[in-house]
C-alpha cells in the first residue's frame, strides 16, 4: 500500500463548522516566543497534523484549521508559547471522529 501524504490523511478527517468562514481558534500560539527565544521549535515536527510550519527563514507559523485536538503541542512546548483549549462547539473548529 502506498503511504498517504499528510494532506491526504487530513483530508479523511471530518472537521466541525467547516461552512463557517470565521472560526474562533481554540489554540493561541505566541509565535514571538517560537521565533525569538525557543531553542528547538519542536512543534514544527511533533504535531501530527502539521499545524505548525517553518518558513524558509526558520520562522514558525501556526494555523488551527487542521488541528485534530490531540494535545501534543501543549506538552511538547516547554516555552510557554502554546495556550491550548478545547474548541467551542458552535464557533470553533475541531473534529468529529467517524471511527475514533
Amino acid at each position: 500500500m502506498k503511504n498517504l501524504k499528510l494532506t491526504e490523511r487530513l483530508g479523511l478527517v471530518s472537521y466541525r463548522n467547516q461552512s463557517k468562514s470565521e472560526i474562533k481558534p481554540h489554540i493561541v500560539v505566541d509565535t514571538d516566543v517560537c521565533n525569538s527565544t525557543c531553542p528547538h521549535k519542536c512543534t514544527t515536527w511533533v504535531c501530527p497534523a502539521n499545524c505548525y510550519t517553518m518558513d524558509d527563514n526558520d520562522q514558525v507559523h501556526f494555523q488551527v484549521e487542521d488541528c485534530i485536538e490531540c494535545g501534543t503541542c501543549m506538552y511538547a512546548c516547554d516555552q510557554g508559547a502554546v495556550d491550548w483549549n478545547f474548541p467551542d462547539p458552535e464557533i470553533g473548529r475541531g473534529v468529529t471522529w467517524n471511527f475514533g
Binding site: 500500500m1 490523511r9 478527517v13 501530527p48 485534530i68 490531540c70 501534543t72 473534529v95 467517524n98 471511527f99
Partner: peptide
C-alpha cells in the same frame, strides 16, 4: 506490516495523547 495492509484502504487518520 506492508504485507498485511497491502490491499487495504485508509479511511481515517487520528491522534490522541
Amino acid at each position: 506490516i506492508a504485507d498485511i495492509i497491502k490491499d487495504g484502504e485508509v479511511v481515517e487518520y487520528s491522534a490522541h495523547v
